[in-house]
Nucleic acid binder design. Structure first.
Lengths: 160, 160
DNA sequence: CCGTTGCGTTAGTGGGACTAACGATGTACG
DNA sequence: CGTACATCGTTAGTCCCACTAACGCAACGG
């Protein structure tokens, strides 16, 4: 259940939302994700980045250069959207795009030194943002939370 | 990581997404919510409904008739989008829209008997969908999950 | 009576997920 | 060999959702 509770929509005690609504896991997920996405997007924007940048750079550093299609599969970004992301990364010299001599259909994407440095910065930014996101939970609860999320997600990605 | 390794990756498990990516709570949340939303939307669509229908009907049954603006506040639907939702509900005779004699700016929305029946159906549909969503978790874990989500969401709705 | 505030409504923005289709390749097979 | 099929990068466009802007109308308070 999605819905917004924006700045101009106060939710003071008098007008409560129904219980059946408030307790649904799907709704809690949607709403929390909205907050979380906003938090992360804004945090990354302050570092002149977007979450895809992080996904691609991390993928490149961890598995080495690859074609756009490959990156797309690894990072979960649709290959249609990959173009734009790589343009942005290339603009910032975080990444280099070169044609593959062995297969002229492909571009081979390589992370640059600047890219590596930027990735390290983003890692730090994300750590801080997650500290904020998970603030109310103690370390054990955070692990538990991540564990539960992982199990649920795994279940639903296999089943699909 | 050599490029050779990446270059001739078949399609089985070898194509992994980086760990730092996979473990981030924000990413887990986003992806799980995508699945969850899809599940719920499709489930409700099969019952000729949308999540907002549920939100409005539940709000009406729990707190009685109200103006559109009031419903908007309770359910978290933007009042801009409320019009369309109420049109859909009125089309289906689940709800009645009548002008408020005491304040001619307002419409007073009332749930109909059909609406009540429909709400009960949707409750059941949602129960089933949540059973599917939370399938991998035992009852205690489901409570824990909902508890964690609630705490996080509360924290971020107050803080905002 | 007038300014303010709240209401219902229409229109539109911006972003994210996802699809369709294309040209230019590569690969497999009869 | 040639032809059918698959893959890659790319463009365009769809759909849905959260959210904003603005308008006209009506009520309320001074």
């Amino acid at each position: 259940m999605t819905s917004a509770e924006a700045a101009d929509m106060p939710d003071d005690g008098a007008l409560r939302t129904p219980d059946r609504l408030r307790r649904r896991a799907s709704r809690l997920l949607s709403r929390l994700t909205m907050r979380s996405d906003r938090l992360v997007n804004e945090g990354l924007a302050r570092a002149d980045a977007r979450k895809w940048h992080y996904a691609v750079l991390a993928s490149l550093e961890e598995y080495g250069p690859g074609s756009q299609a490959e990156l797309s599969r690894r990072s979960g970004i649709y290959r249609s959207d990959m173009v734009g992301v790589l343009n942005e990364l290339a603009e910032r010299d975080l990444v280099e795009r070169a044609p593959d001599p062995d297969d002229r259909r492909r571009n081979i994407i390589t992370i640059s030194d600047r890219g590596r440095r930027h990735l390290r910065l983003l890692d730090h930014v994300l750590d801080d943002l997650h500290e904020e996101l998970l603030a109310p939970l103690d370390p054990a609860e955070r692990d538990e939370f991540v564990g539960l999320l992982t199990r649920l997600l795994d279940h639903h990605t296999r089943a699909s």
